[in-house]
Nucleic acid binder design. Structure first.
Lengths: 225, 225
DNA sequence: TGAATTATGATAGTAATACTATTAATTTTG
DNA sequence: CAAAATTAATAGTATTACTATCATAATTCA
């Protein structure tokens, strides 16, 4: 899989960035270090000035890649969902049986992220933690409708759509495939968060993953043909 | 119910505020107007200076009630969850049959908030919208563990706990009562958000509420005794 | 009532944020 | 090697998120 992925580029809506960070060394370092810094200090405390200092570059240079840190967050999370979509498609493509396919899909999108060395400058494990902690902030804004219209959430929506399609394949009579799909994706992030910060609000532990919870939920809910 | 509630005060952890906003007229106006303003302009654009201007008071006076706007958000959302808990307990208290009780509970916590005139200065309908849009921001922070330790999320946790207890009463063998409960509460906010901004990601519409989705989900998942 | 206490208002000030603009230095490329 | 493009350095602005101080208004309680 790694070899295959090496030639793949996750493609992000061009309006999210000013200049494609994949197109230069500085751009890649912006992405690489911003992931680590946002994880370390949280999105609120993270600034372009601090990032500039960290990578031995200048605040103004970073503004040539991203209008502001909100756009950078949109970029990072879009990349994550694109990466996850790739894993999903790749891993489920060859599975014919709808319920096996859906089972695999749920596993992929709910499990704790493992190291992936295909994209050398992006640490997916840390990026996954950013998504858990910060993704909601990218859409819980007053600009969400405008940004949605501009296609900033396309990849995420496509991912929800793919899973809801798989749900339909398993049980065409289930009345809430889209809601269930969005519940799996969003709920998985939430259960991972609870596991780390509010243990009493979840049954998910190290040994008892969100994967198991959602797998159990979905397959006890749908009536297979 | 209104008469009963008139003598009830939602009690909020005292460390969330500097001075109890319920203890004065200015305090109540701070709460009342901040709800409307956060709803109108979003939490990011909302400032104490703007609030001061709106209520014909001074920035510095508001700081005598709340340390910062994060604490104000904690206050408002805690109040909301306390209010919802009251509705929940009040409405389910007299129901003996576990599954009827749980059904009522789900209805209460997932439905669109209706007007409640018992607390004259708080607009619960608008507050519910704030909770949908802003609640995650109150805990998706680097300070969450510290603030959790200080009891800032007690009411919310108690609410999750009450519902997971009801789930256990219906099906003691269901292995994920806490996760299911937190999924209902968090997922309901999320479905309401999707209904307003990402209609393709949900099956919930005006006529087809998150209530129905979660009721269907829970009762098709649990095996009643 | 009137003195003391408390609450609120007005003003000023600070450090940090989130940028924009300009110019200089460096690197790339044709 | 010159021209073009990229990056770095510096400075500057408006706003935010406060803190501090002092004046004034309202409350209370002796």
């Amino acid at each position: 899989m790694e070899r295959l992925l090496q030639s793949v580029k996750i493609s992000i809506n061009e309006n999210i960035y000013v200049k494609d960070p994949e197109s230069s060394n500085l751009g890649k370092r912006i992405v690489e270090e911003s992931i680590l810094m946002i994880h370390d200090m949280g999105f609120e405390s993270f600034t372009f000035k601090k990032l500039g200092m960290q990578i031995g570059s200048n605040e103004s240079s970073i503004y040539r890649y991203f209008e502001n840190k909100h756009k950078l967050l949109l970029y990072l999370t879009s990349w994550y969902w694109g990466w996850l979509e790739y894993q999903l498609v790749f891993s489920t493509n060859s599975i014919a049986a709808p319920s096996k396919k859906l089972g695999k899909a749920i596993e992929i999108v709910t499990k704790t992220t493992q190291k992936d060395s295909a994209f050398s400058h992006i640490n997916e494990v840390v990026l996954n933690k950013i998504v858990i902690n910060e993704y909601s902030k990218s859409y819980l804004t007053k600009e969400v409708d405008q940004e949605n219209k501009e296609g900033y959430f396309t990849i995420y929506k496509r991912l929800v759509d793919r899973i809801s399609e798989m749900i339909r394949e398993v049980d065409e009579d289930y009345p809430y495939p889209s809601s269930l799909s969005s519940t799996i994706l969003e709920g998985s992030l939430h259960q991972h968060f609870l596991k780390d910060h509010f243990t009493s609000l979840t049954d998910c532990r190290k040994a008892n993953d969100p994967s198991q919870y959602f797998t159990h939920l979905v397959f006890n809910l749908l009536r297979e043909k």
